[in-house]
Design a protein around this nucleic acid. Structure first.
Lengths: 188, 188
DNA sequence: ATAATACTGAATAGAGTGTTCGATAGCATA
DNA sequence: TATGCTATCGAACACTCTATTCAGTATTAT
């Protein structure tokens, strides 16, 4: 989203996103029509198509906006730690759990709605890239003689499944506890 | 599927399944139309709706037909082992990997096509029930103080992800090797 | 104030869904 | 082989949804 965006554009775009998110927690993504969205968002039909080529593009852009924040914040945090030489190997995940619980952008609504698989998959692909860069995680995989990409995928999916379980439990556990579960599961 | 099914019904049903499977490996499930299916299957429109209420039902019944075999075979094998008191704790998974590689019903085509998430998720839900009944798997979870349902989900998803990785690698590894990877990953 | 541009609202063509029905052909049974 | 039963055909139908268009209106940046 460009900074120099017409206020009207921003408003329409935001209204569409907001309506779409609300609808996503109400019904299956395949059953949501453009009519539903524009009625809820209170914008004209032509406006919708001026912003998004199709519903699929809307979904894709929504995912990008949602997850760019969370991964950016990790990247910043990680580079800080690098600068200060404060090496806490697995705290990246604690950082992610904490960030999730803060629930910026109502990300939790989407990760717990009936369409959550959609978002968990998208989240996982972002995670995969992040994990690849965390070399200290691979000590165990070497010990267990597991291929690198197998291990990367294993960690990413275990993280996502931990989040899924956590959300199902209504986030009763603290980020520290759930991070502990996660680390025990991957036995790091 | 009832045994006493009219030959015409069987033929139509099979033709529809076959056409659907072929289409699934060509394009996204959402883009497949009833028109596509009946043209490929060479049956009338009314025939399709006589067999399946909607496309979603077709998909559901396809999944059931596909996975019932594989889980039934495990159940039989498991109860045999029970009778003969031959207790090989984790061989259920080796049995599953072996069964998958045999590729009955072209199950692998579906697990490796672009719609594989659909089938892997369905496969996982079947697995979940199976794992719940395998009590010997929970020794480690008790040691690591992890909740039962967390652990069940962890094993199920790790299995599914192992299968996913295996298929991506074109099934080059033997069932024994891949079972080994899986057991190392869950550290059982 | 002005020019640029985003939005509206209604109309439109086209694709896909799910149903209907009389006619036809295949099936099980006797 | 003749019988009734039932699955299929194929075409037509109403319906919903998609995606585009365009003239008129409102808002914005400068």
């Amino acid at each position: 989203m460009k900074k120099t965006m017409d206020r009207r554009q921003r408003k329409s775009r935001e209204a569409i996103f907001k309506a779409f998110i609300a609808l996503l927690s109400e019904k299956n993504v395949n059953k949501i029509t453009v009519e539903d969205i524009i009625t809820r968002a209170d914008v004209g039909r032509a406006t919708f198509y001026a912003h998004f080529e199709t519903k699929d593009f809307l979904l894709k852009e929504l995912c990008e906006e949602l997850f760019c924040h969370i991964f950016d914040s990790v990247d910043n945090n990680h580079s800080h730690r690098h600068i200060f030489e404060c090496d806490a190997p697995d705290s990246v995940f604690l950082h992610l759990f904490t960030h999730l619980k803060k629930n910026d952008n109502n990300i939790l609504e989407l990760l717990s709605c009936q369409n959550n698989d959609l978002f968990l998959q998208y989240f996982k692909s972002g995670l995969y890239r992040l994990i690849e860069s965390q070399h200290q995680l691979y000590k165990y995989s070497e010990k267990a003689k597991l291929p690198t990409d197998f291990w990367t995928n294993h960690i990413a999916s275990t993280f996502v499944e931990t989040v899924r379980w956590w959300i199902n439990e209504k986030l009763q556990k603290s980020p520290e506890e759930i991070n502990d579960y996660f680390l025990r599961a991957i036995n790091a």
